[in-house]
Design a protein around this nucleic acid. Sequence first.
DNA 1: CGACGCGTTGATATGGCTCAAGAGTGGTGG
DNA 2: CCACCACTCTTGAGCCATATCAACGCGTCG
Lengths: 223, 223
Amino acid sequence: MYVTATLPLMQTRSIPPLRPRIARQRTLTIKPGKHLFLEGDAADKIYEVATGVLRLTRIMEDGRRQVIAFGYPGDTVGFPSDGRYHTDCDALVPSTLIVHRRADLETAKGDAALHQRLLRAALREISGMQDHFMMLGRKSSVEKLASFLLVLTDRVGAPLGDFDQVNLPMTRGDIADFLGLTTETVSRTFTQLRKSQIIAIDHINTVVILKPTALRSIAEGAD
Amino acid sequence: MYVTATLPLMQTRSIPPLRPRIARQRTLTIKPGKHLFLEGDAADKIYEVATGVLRLTRIMEDGRRQVIAFGYPGDTVGFPSDGRYHTDCDALVPSTLIVHRRADLETAKGDAALHQRLLRAALREISGMQDHFMMLGRKSSVEKLASFLLVLTDRVGAPLGDFDQVNLPMTRGDIADFLGLTTETVSRTFTQLRKSQIIAIDHINTVVILKPTALRSIAEGAD
DNA sequence: CGACGCGTTGATATGGCTCAAGAGTGGTGG
DNA sequence: CCACCACTCTTGAGCCATATCAACGCGTCG
């Protein structure tokens, strides 16, 4: 069997945000709480996150919500199907985005390199989602939260003394809806990891990874 | 809110299998139980299902399994990321596949129409997976099974008298691993739907949809 | 200062899991 | 053609992880 680190976020590995070279780039700023697009909107644009964090969600008629992904710098969001977006998308923190036309993804007629780039982002998204499946369908609450923290730390963690630290711009409810749990369970699971000295919690949204190895073995399903 | 039929399978809508026009197509036959590729294999080829049914799976070190998707005619499987496959893939029934080169997806240099076609398949896969997320994370067992049966019926159901009938080439275990349940729960849920006269079960793997409306309202979360 | 949103914690309920037994079902070889 | 075996499916009983319901603290913002 091929062993994979299980990665709940959209993408397996981050790619540095596109830096303008020759052509001027269309960019866009979006504030927390503001929607970039809604499910069902005609999808003309594709967005590449430059700074900030986005949230992609799906909502059922009765209000049940699933967070499909968090969009971090380097991530691309807004892949259309049948010309429409299939999730809602809003910002968790002030964010800046690079705007691409749908045509840049769909045809190689224009900027071939950009086309390639967007295509590759789409493929990365597919493989990232496959990890998320395993997590949603087959993992316990601790395993889910451990996996989540690990991926986030890998992608956007910052060293703090001997440890890695990670900031969580999303609420416990967002994490719950990403992992298929309730806020209460997420909160309890944080407490559990904190009490077993595997993580430390600074200000509600700042987690320090004290025992990365322990966290990793929890995520992979070691008892 | 934009209301979506929730669709657990890979793709929202089937597309007719590619029919050879000028160039000869490379095709391939695969028997039940045989693997088309494994997670981690170098991904040189992309496959379009012409006939049969494939199964895409992910397995954890301790044996927990997640069925990522079932590949029906018109579906495309084997999207690579970083040049590798990220799931295992085998056949549930004898299947024939149209083989494409990875380059056909990745560059528009060769057959532009084919490139487009594969790209669109990738985008459809992304949106299909988003539906699957909602199902895995937020639905009850009946809702899951109802959604599953509906999508399958839409895609590969056949009329039988006044009703639609659908064949299930996969085991209860496969369905369980697709829906994030156990075999026992899947079996019980089938029984429950059968006893409430919403479906009828012919030969273990043949389901007749007696009350599609009821099934639909269960899938969407009506109590 | 009050209100509201968010997070934590506790008590209890319950849906789906686990363990276990039996009933089909299909394949194989005598 | 039948007997046997392996495998899948079904059903039951009990349990456990997570949901639900509820209370409360804390920080933020008007």
